[in-house]
Write a protein that binds this DNA or RNA. Structure first.
Lengths: 362, 362
DNA sequence: CTTAGCACTCGATCAAGTCGAGTGCTAATC
DNA sequence: GATTAGCACTCGACTTGATCGAGTGCTAAG
């Protein structure tokens, strides 16, 4: 717990350094942050703050830079979140609204918007459904022995998979089998399909369709397949800490390989919470000099994804955190409008993106 | 037309510079490229090559660097294409084979593989169908007034679009309407749907479904929507010419904004040809110091896309060109196996990825 | 036409010197 | 005891000058 004055100084150091990326001098603080004491006094305080581990000097007789501990204190007690200007909020909502009906688009849009407002790289994972439930499927005969299984899930996502069709199976056979199975498998999860189709009698074609269905659904429940969108690499390259190429290379490498990003996702807490990892709190070496702000969206249960930003330690937390929160909220709303309850169950409403009352599991 | 000896020198300069990115000295040439004449003679020849515009010195008394003209001469007359090692070819085929049934995957894989073998950034555009033809569609009622139209095209791609369903329309209504329409609209292009549905009598629900269908198909035929995959940014950042950050930034910026990439696509010639643009042949300033190698894949007519690499002027053309050609061929084969003719029309074959005889339009 | 020899050019690298921002400390002041 | 003016000191950033050597162009001889 720091004294009032030390807090003011620490806060000013973090803010100034976040803006300029240059060690902060005592006189700058006095001049630009309305300090009523002299620079000498500030220097004394800074020396103590350094002894306590909140700031440090890159070399003797230079200004001060916040340490990880300093950033953490700042985020937990000092920072005031800057709300997005009303106009900006509306613009963003409007942009989402325009693509609300195309899922891929709004995931990508989420990353793009977040990157822009938070001035850092943004990542958005596609929502994962804990146990995908069948809405409808169709098995189509494409050519030769090639068939296409198209599966629509209750959350509105569509998956497809080419399959090899057994000799002598016609489109009529497939349609008939699909028709019957659609009736009996509606709203079933993979496990339920597995259980249900075991006991009943099935024709050969039905068996084939079920096998294909199970295979496709197995892929869905496989967490390694989550697609992760990202944007804002340029924002990072603009930051002086990535001028080294060395580090720039590492970041580019990572953002291009979704596998690494995926491993960030499971750690994010359920619920409204926001996870902030600063420097060494991160699991990988290449991230020791980075900070991430992550939030979950969706109902945090049946269907959820993660949005977040990734940047240097001197992330503009005051902007990044509310932005992440805001985008997560918008995406939750969008998701609710599609997934959630079936037809007629939830009360009608104007058009999802504005009015809001949470609808839950199906 | 250059003398035999000048050609040998130019070829050596290009190859050496491609490898090392350092101005090439006359002695290096003599030492490492089995020249039988002395370095002084080579210097004389180089002076002439410079006067003729094939090479130049970055500053007086430095080695030589190929000019754009030099690269062009090299590509057109001097270069020998290095075939991919047989083992590598098999590995690549195998990788594609593994994901052959998932379209998105193999597009991304194409970019990844190309980036790796050509040691440059790779781009792959998703195949565009000149006039998409309907295979099957389904209109599903999701919740409240929200419906989901799922459309499968004859090339095996699947598109979806959320729509607002008119008051009081049930899933039964939608299914019935879709059922009837599926029968009459099978294999139709957008224009044909438009023409066909004009005269017939349609129920209100059918009209609604047709409207949604037309809207979705309009999006498909819109070239601005082509998705472009890319990979291999890291390969670029490793090259010394992008060490400046300045240029690195520009490249990253461009590869992150698909809009720019899309504009590269229309220029690529139909057929088996490969388009090579070196330096100032490119349309944009940021590409004046880059070279691209592009090829079309698909039947080059009804359904086609583009693959290519993007790198510094000193691209390893001898490797990049055959690689691009090879990947384009594989992707053409993959495409043929799905799109093309309908069931039963083309002769059966083992499994597309190996045997090959072109099947054409549907 | 080829080539040995040599003067010359010019970037790269290093050492020395200067500048100035910013600190820590001391001693005087409130 | 807390604050502050004053000042010596530190250290990176930048400049300058010198040196080195790779590589050329030219000349004159073979």
């Amino acid at each position: 717990m720091l004294s009032e004055r030390k807090e003011r100084i620490l806060k000013a150091v973090v803010e100034e350094y976040t803006r300029n990326a240059r060690p902060v001098a005592s006189e700058t603080l006095q001049r630009e942050y309305g300090m009523t004491v002299s620079s000498a006094t500030i220097r004394n305080e800074m020396a103590e703050l350094e002894a306590e581990g909140y700031i440090y000097q890159p070399h003797t007789s230079a200004g001060r830079i916040p340490s990880e501990q300093g950033y953490r204190y700042f985020v937990q007690r000092l920072m005031q979140e800057e709300r997005l200007p009303r106009a900006e909020q509306l613009t963003i909502r409007h942009q989402f609204h325009q693509v609300a009906l195309m899922r891929e688009e709004w995931l990508q849009l989420g990353a793009a918007v977040l990157a822009r407002v938070a001035r850092a790289a943004a990542i958005v994972s596609a929502p994962v459904v804990s146990a995908s439930r069948i809405k409808h499927f169709e098995m189509l005969h494409m050519q030769d022995h090639l068939g296409l299984l198209v599966l629509v899930l209750q959350d509105g996502s569509v998956k497809q998979q080419l399959v090899t069709v057994p000799d002598g199976t016609s489109q009529e056979d497939l349609s008939a089998a699909s028709g019957r199975l659609n009736a009996s498998l509606h709203a079933r999860s993979r496990a339920e399909v597995l259980a249900n189709t075991g006991k009943e009698f099935l024709t050969r074609t039905e068996q084939f369709v079920v096998r294909a269905l199970l295979e496709l659904m197995a892929q869905l429940d496989n967490r390694d397949a989550v697609t992760v969108y990202h944007d804002g690499l340029v924002e990072l390259l603009d930051q002086p800490e990535f001028a080294s190429l060395e580090r720039a290379r590492a970041i580019v490498e990572v953002l291009e390989r979704p596998q690494v990003l995926r491993e960030l996702l499971p750690g994010v807490p359920q619920g409204d919470g926001i996870q902030i990892l600063i420097g060494s709190e991160n699991r990988w070496d290449w991230m020791k000099e980075c900070a991430v702000v992550l939030a979950r969206y969706g109902d945090g249960n049946e269907v959820t994804g993660v949005v977040g930003v990734l940047g240097p330690l001197r992330l503009p937390y005051g902007i990044a955190i509310p932005s992440v929160r805001y985008i997560a909220r918008i995406m939750t709303e969008l998701l609710d409008d599609i997934g959630g309850s079936g037809p007629g169950v939830s009360p009608g409403r104007a058009n999802g993106l504005t009015a809001r009352e949470s609808t839950n599991d199906n």
